[in-house]
Amino acid sequence: MASAYIWTQGDPIGAVKRLLNILRRQAPDAEIGSIGTTGSARKLIGAMLHADVVKNEITAHAVGTLSRHADVRTIIEIGGQDSKIILIEDGIVKDYAMNTLCAAGTGAFLSSQAKRLEIPIEAMGDMAMQSQSPAKIAARCTVFAESDMIHKAQAGYSKMDLVAGLCRAVAANYLNNVGKGKQIVSPIVFQGGVSKNKGVLAAFQEELGEKIHVDADSHLMGALGAAILSQKKTTHRKPFDFSMLQMEYVTRAHICSGCTNNCEIVQFYRGDTLLDSWGKRCEGSVG
């Protein structure tokens, strides 16, 4: 399987271009049978690539994980921006929750703290595992967590203990916020970018007292789900044209003055051709 996991760096279109080039290098002879998109920019990228399926990440994650672990009951997913919990019963999603207003239990928090401590984010997990006495760090809120961490650093804790404390804070925050009131039943699968962090995994296992599975492709489950869903839905499509990666994609936004709704219309262009538009709230407005 050809796969890649990269940061969008605030530019999803550029990231998709890079991603497709990487994938083409990995599998030069492969034909593209169908395309599915998921995640926050799913609509935009779906329009850009003429995707067969544009699916929300919760369904995509559930489908992806079920394809690997058919008996899964609880999916813990922590990505860069958001974290979610998906409860599954008899192979269908029974309940789910996403983090709401707070980014404390997400990868973004870990990566910003890794920068502060000047350690590569990939090394955090191994460092955390070496710690004998993790620092106690507040889990309620990133701001508190950060000031807690600075205090502990000044009190002379080693970086290892700080990192281990951070990993515990992420796990505790997740269970307090996203997992609040949810019955976490095993088998549990942990996925998303943060699942690569052994420290967080260990913290979860300790808190829940259960074994937690982490798939080798745990960071790709959403993509896998979107791919499976697109496969089911695919129609006879034109062969994918890689030359469109060279084209210029622009998004323009304006306020429609067609009626009193004053919708903010977002239009997405490839070169000069309009691909798609969003944001209209009435029947009459010009797309």
Partner: peptide, 12 residues
């Protein structure tokens, strides 16, 4: 975020 939650809810 809202769209994701509603879509997932409808799927569910």
């Amino acid at each position: 975020g809202l769209e994701t939650r509603i879509e997932a809810f409808m799927d569910m």
